[in-house]
Design a protein around this nucleic acid. Structure first.
Lengths: 210, 210
DNA sequence: CAGTAAATATACAGACCTGTATGTTCTGCG
DNA sequence: CGCAGAACATACAGGTCTGTATATTTACTG
């Protein structure tokens, strides 16, 4: 057989078996869903033996949790670099989230939020505690991240603002997946700007325009 | 065996077989997920024979589409009654959406948006065209509904406002499912109010508070 | 009462799933 | 070189899934 010419995912040859498995599983689980991708397919496409797989991962559920932790790292890295650029004001850092979202929405591989999809497949009734813990940790981490970005703004109701920004983020992702409109991220960026400015200047908020 | 004393779902005895199947499937698909609930379980819990099931539904995918159409009707009915109450101003009609969401979030059976979950399980790659069509029709219907509520406000950028309101709606649902905080719907109601008021009075928007 | 259509119970085919068991081959290191 | 451990290929056990086939019973209708 010489060498496997994997035309589709090329930078997979040099990696160690464990990383090949995680990368293959991550792509397949995200593109399709977890339940529609079996172990056999992951093993075949990662070019790994079944025994090797079960040496590295005790079960499929553990691989799913690993996949989600992997996505969580990528996700928070993307937000961290976008919001951490030098020279940005505190307000601009929050708004940079939506610029980063805008870019990721345009990627052809975009399929929505892996954790929302994870909740859909592994609800509270299903018994996969490790997966559920990983999902809950992601949402809590994202909440804490947004809260840390909003704190410097010294708003009157920071907790409420965090909920609003998080809703705009998650709503953007759902809309970007369900309809295909390039204005989604920008519209929500504007919404976030308005909400945060209103929080900075209380005279703005809840006053009837007349 | 005399009679089946179904203690859990009582108002199921008098219904016709087809409606028993839809009701049972709707509850199970929504509480758990579609892929984790098999035909056998639906048949068992609806008290119907397998042949009867396949007389009424040509396949499981068709039942899934029927379930989603059922949920779509319930969902739009809820929004219609909440926003259609007499004596509400156009702005209040939009905000009434979030009051209705707040109520549904508190129901113990709340498990998020059936259509977001449907997208997670039946992505664009999976070949279930009827299910995908049903999901797409729901999102388009919801968009048109919100657009019809916003039209009377005569905003400068109605399309953008629709995207913002839809994002707040979907974001609320995701947050209500991932974290459990009773302020979510209210916070997003306030956000919607502020955004729509800013659209009514352009002097509000995008002015730096200093 | 008779006859027809719907619903029943049950068994089963074929495919897929996770996870294990049994060997063989490659690879890195002393 | 020589050997140990990792990764390989493959077959299979036990279970579940969708969908079909066979045969019996209920229920309505003329």
């Amino acid at each position: 057989m010489l060498e496997i010419m994997d035309l589709e995912s090329q930078p997979l040859s040099g990696l160690a078996p464990r990383e090949r498995i995680v990368k293959t599983a991550s792509d397949l689980f995200y593109r399709f869903s977890v339940h529609t991708v079996g172990i056999d397919r992951i093993i075949a496409e990662s070019g790994v033996a079944k025994m090797t797989f079960y040496k590295h991962f005790p079960s499929k559920a553990n691989l799913v949790a690993t996949y989600l932790r992997h996505k969580n790292i990528l996700w928070l890295q993307m937000l961290g670099t976008a919001t951490g650029k030098a020279g940005l004001s505190p307000l601009e850092r929050v708004l940079a989230i939506f610029d980063a979202l805008d870019a990721s929405f345009q990627a052809p591989s975009f399929r929505g939020c892996p954790f929302v999809k994870g909740m859909a497949e592994f609800g509270p009734e299903g018994n996969s505690p490790e997966v559920q813990m990983t999902i809950a940790a992601h949402f809590e981490g994202l909440r804490a991240f947004v809260a840390s970005l909003i704190a410097p703004l010294a708003l009157n109701e920071p907790k409420k603002a965090v909920v609003q920004i998080l809703s705009l983020i998650q709503g953007s992702i759902v809309l970007a997946q369900s309809m295909r409109d390039p204005i989604i991220a920008g519209a929500n960026r504007d919404a976030a700007k308005l909400l945060l400015q209103a929080g900075l200047n209380p005279a703005f908020s809840l006053e009837s325009p007349e």
